Amino acid sequence: MSKIEEQMQNLRMTTGRDPVCGKQVELAQNSRSLVYHGVTYHFCSGHCQERFVDIPALYTGPQRLADIRPILKRRKLRVVDGNQANLPLVCQRLQEMIGVSSVTCENDRLIVEYDLRLTVLTQIEAVAATEDVHFKEGVHALRRWLWKSAESNELENAAHPATGACCNRPPVRLR
């Protein structure tokens, strides 16, 4: 084995790839890992580990890296009156999240653009709640519930692309 091959082997033994975001993870310094179907997966953050636990098939299925495309979402979230004081801090915290590409803060709303493969609306709502910013109820709460349900279905379909069946294309009946 040449010296370069030996160095590459040592590098592979000391680092791993986060299956969610693709970052290299130092295994010696990493405390975030879990075993799924006999394989140990290492994560760069609790956020990535949470995404993996939610839908592991999305990150462990037989997909080529070149075929993985972002699933972009844009949501307008209406803030409850009186919660606007912490809005700039929420915007900053959301911008730091893995998968969030842009955040716009307006008077009574947040406009968030993100990659569904890396974050979901539930995680965005949780970050806002930690800063005591809450979103409107009523029709807006129903809309958020529908968005979360649609996101769940979309991720499930992305995790199992080989079946060919989904809510828009029923399976072909074989004779």
Rank of each mutant, 00 (worst) to 15 (best):
T15I: 04
G16E: 06
R17M: 11
D18F: 03
D18E: 07
V20N: 00
C21F: 03
C21Y: 03
Q24H: 09
Q24P: 00
E26S: 09
A28D: 10
A28Q: 12
Q29R: 12
N30Y: 01
N30Q: 09
S31I: 09
S31W: 04
S33K: 13
L34K: 06
H37E: 12
G38L: 11
V39H: 05
T40C: 07
F43P: 02
G46E: 12
C48V: 07
Q49K: 12
Q49Y: 05
Q49E: 14
Q49C: 07
R51Q: 08
V53E: 10
V53I: 15
D54S: 13
I55T: 13
P56R: 09
A57Y: 10
A57N: 10
L58Y: 04
Y59C: 04
Y59P: 01
T60C: 03
Q63W: 12
Q63I: 13
R64P: 04
L65S: 09
L72F: 08
R75V: 14
R75K: 10
L77D: 02
R78C: 12
V80C: 08
D81H: 13
G82D: 06
N83M: 12
N83Y: 14
Q84K: 13
A85W: 15
N86D: 14
N86W: 12
N86A: 15
L87W: 06
V90M: 08
V90I: 13
V90S: 04
C91I: 13
C91H: 09
Q92K: 14
L94R: 02
E96V: 02
G99L: 03
V100D: 00
S101Q: 09
S101L: 04
